[in-house]
Write a protein that binds this DNA or RNA. Structure first.
Lengths: 226, 226
DNA sequence: CGACTTCGTCAAGATCACGTCAAGAAGCGC
DNA sequence: GCGCTTCTTGACGTGATCTTGACGAAGTCG
């Protein structure tokens, strides 16, 4: 059974999540503060952590760092404020996804499923993925459309696409993309991302103005949706 | 044609073996140290390796282990020392035969024949591919056009073509091509690639200015498209 | 409702990579 | 040793790619 550790300081949220997750056959542990979360994570080794950033005793990002020091367990962050820098910091610290409060339980459960699915296949390779009518073959470094025609990507376009495709379903922060593609000195040049994401959508999406796979998460980053 | 890789640090031995083996219709590549031997073996896929144990850069047994990590190519060891423990170490590491210096060329040739006969029943791969009007036969090491005429390629041209053809449809990076053909110190000399890719296209493509099989991926590398 | 941020888009110049030509150096066969 | 092939190295024009700035639209927050 999949073990979930839920960390939140609001008792009613803890109660709601515990009931809903148990109904879905998850094994649920709860913690009300950061110290308890770290202690429970170490002793119970959960398969997923659902973490609220607003904790009474310590900053949520510190909790993430404390976990990432010794485990790669998937972390889904809950945040009360939309557009907050806290969430970007959380993703950069190693969180896997985020959900803004107030959130629907269905949405959270969907993200839990997505994150567990990805963690299950972590060891395997992803040789090819589909984007609209196109197939992205990472090993061959090629993009082909259905009728065999090739789509040419520039080196920078490839670099960016590869990072997103290697993290399917996962939100990748702007800072991380800029750092990985352009280097540590370009972490605030978000126009580069806008420029190249637009080019990728023009080349890969069926309707570039209405992307279905290369999604923008405003203020956060970008996500490749298989 | 059978490909032989000769590894020795003494130029006169290299020269003598090259002349004698070529006279017997073997295709000979030579290396002067262990690193070059491993590189040539990976890119050129010899049918036999003749390996001197006394190399300047690394222990011969290490070279044997490096080869045995991924290939079962027959290895004939040359050694100046008749000591039995060297022999045991080499054979235990995966060598197939052992010749003590000084040796007669006839003896070595006999052992080469014996070892090839023994390994004759090995698995095979893609022997021939088509490029335009030409047929590239990797095992025979020859390129023929439709009417039977032969196209002559220089050793470097072969080396480059072989790497590309052994990775059909896949992008091979400039760095890897330069590393495999010219060695680790030439990884930024992209003019070599431009020079030899142009020569290959002149010899193989129907319209060299509009290549259909030897494709450039700007900024990244080259690709052989079957 | 207005100030502010963020995103998508367009357009421009600067820069880089490629193909090509050419010539000297080195290696090999005779 | 001599002639030939092959390899190495440099330079240049052209076209593609990258970089950079600016603008309006959409959304957010007070």
């Amino acid at each position: 059974m999949t073990r979930v550790l839920v960390v939140d300081d609001e008792p009613q949220i803890l109660r709601a999540l515990r009931i809903n997750l148990r109904a879905r056959r998850y094994d649920v542990e709860v913690a009300g503060d950061g110290a308890g979360a770290l202690r429970l994570a170490a002793s119970h080794r959960p398969d997923i952590v659902v973490l609220d950033l607003g904790l009474p005793d310590m900053d949520g990002v510190q909790v993430i760092r404390g976990l990432r020091g010794w485990t790669n367990v998937p972390i889904i962050v809950l945040s009360g404020r939309a557009g907050s820098q806290d969430k970007v910091a959380a993703l950069d610290a190693g969180a896997d996804d985020y959900v803004t409060k107030p959130f629907g339980v269905d949405e959270l459960l969907a993200r839990v499923r997505a994150v567990t699915r990805r963690a299950a296949g972590a060891g395997e390779e992803v040789p090819a993925v589909e984007i609209g009518r196109h197939t992205v073959d990472l090993t061959a470094h090629a993009v082909r459309t259905g009728d065999g025609a090739e789509v040419r990507l520039t080196p920078t376009e490839w670099h960016l696409l590869e990072i997103l495709v290697r993290n399917p379903g996962r939100l990748v922060s702007q800072r991380q993309l800029l750092h990985d593609v352009w280097g540590p000195k370009y972490q605030s040049e978000t126009n580069y991302l806008r420029q190249y994401m637009a080019q990728l959508r023009r080349k890969l999406e069926d309707d570039p103005s209405r992307p279905r796979h290369l999604l923008t998460e405003p203020g956060m980053g970008y996500r490749f949706q298989p």
